[in-house]
Design a protein around this nucleic acid. Structure first.
Lengths: 250, 250
DNA sequence: CGCCCTCTTGAAATTGTTCAATAGAGGTGG
DNA sequence: CCACCTCTATTGAACAATTTCAAGAGGGCG
């Protein structure tokens, strides 16, 4: 719980100095424009960076579990993560997938309300919550940014409730593929052969379906000619308008 | 779009003066401790109040529609509202019910992402978004409060996704009744004979069920002896532990 | 008091699940 | 580099939960 646990690097060289010398990992951050760091000038950036510890996760490695003390918040810099909740009997609901640029750990309570786990090998920036909150007092831009992020997540959550409560399996899969495509595009990646790095089980747990239904629905869309299943977890959206028609406006 | 549209009252008497003379509606606000106003001192409160217009809605009256320009935010002071999204063919997902003390209108985009409508006759405090945001610059406590509210809503949204994606009809209804009970208690109302002011259709649209399934499930729980259906939209939670067992930890 | 709207109940239909088996892909070690 | 092994994905058939369609009962408001 001391500063040293979280900030090993700053003992070696003050972050401000490192930033000046362009040794800062943040200076090279490819997703800076999407993160909490986006609105900061270089001085504020250095203060944030001083709190940061880089984290690397292997595929399948847990980041934290629901109910655990919520000591840190994170920014995803590479890879894909999933966030989920469990029922006592093991039924799982994946409440979101996280990609580079996404923020993780917003919770005004003392414990995480969900578990987080790497889907693919992933990199994150870790910030101790307490220190970041202290910094927010001095740099209100950070708080504003977090409020913006939270608002966007809320909009996405409502969209997901509509999907879970009212869409059919086919509509769910179509919406899911379009969501992946749009988010890839937002990060500057290709929108069309879209990368689908998560398992059928994860997709099912995200959409409120079984893996079998996910698989069958992919097959159906493939036979429709709406999509093509390519090697390496890629999906070609052969007829995007058809997908959008099916998805019902997402 | 002028100040006068939103703030008719301040033309009559400055809010600060009114607050001093205890004519302020906020001074008598019974849900102040739950709203964005909670952390404010009387001077800040007066500034907020100067932006406020009271709104009254009849049962069934719309407050705003999805896609509409998001000009205002609201605090509920009395009654019950619902918030929902529609699919092109009319399928509806109620994404939340709002009770006194609840905040409404958080959206970082230019338009509302959902529609809002009164379930029972309701009262709200309306604030023009632009002016409240300007005030937030000077009173960061408001922004902090909003971030706290947004975080809580995000936690609730994830809980609801778990419900929609993974719970059975019986589990959904049990969770719903317990949620209503807990929220009534938070507002200082009775936790046990719980008021259920919304229609079976609204409940179904909230839980991802049809009205028939909602009705059948109520009947089933009634025959179990788990609940009793009382007159005036009240439900007695005869065996709360059984409900909690069924709900699976909400 | 009666009308209308909501709620309840029943039976049939359907979507998605469950159970079960096969096929495929990725990774490891010989 | 290939063979094997394991985990994931696909496919099939029977089953179940919830929906759909249909009719009747109840309750509140004019």
């Amino acid at each position: 719980m001391t500063v040293f646990d979280y900030n090993r690097e700053s003992k070696v060289a003050p972050a401000v100095a490192r930033a000046r010398r362009d040794e800062s990992p943040c200076a090279a951050c490819s997703v800076r424009g999407m993160t909490i760091c986006a609105p900061l000038d270089w001085q504020e950036q250095a203060q944030v960076e001083a709190l940061m510890t880089p984290v690397q996760l292997d595929a399948g490695a847990p980041l934290f579990d629901e109910g655990e003390a919520a000591g840190n918040v994170y920014n995803v810099t590479s890879g894909t993560l999933k966030v989920y909740k469990l029922l006592p009997d093991g039924r799982r609901q994946v409440t979101g997938f996280l990609f580079p640029g996404d923020f993780l750990g917003l919770a005004r309570q003392e414990t995480y309300a969900f578990s987080a786990e790497a889907v693919t090998p992933s990199g994150l920036c870790r910030f101790p919550r307490g220190k970041l909150e202290a910094l927010m007092q001095r740099v209100p831009k950070i708080e504003q940014r977090l409020l913006g992020i939270a608002s966007n997540e809320l909009v996405a959550a409502q969209e997901q409730m509509l999907l879970l409560g009212r869409k059919t399996a086919k509509e769910k899969i179509a919406s899911f593929l379009l969501m992946l495509s749009k988010r890839a595009q937002q990060r500057g990646q290709a929108a069309d052969p879209v990368l689908v790095p998560m398992s059928r089980t994860d997709i099912g747990d995200y959409l409120g379906l079984t893996t079998e239904t996910v698989s069958r629905t992919f097959t159906q869309l493939k036979q429709d000619g709406t999509i093509q299943l390519l090697p390496n977890h890629e999906v070609r959206l052969a007829r995007r308008e058809a997908l959008e028609e099916i998805a019902g406006g997402f």
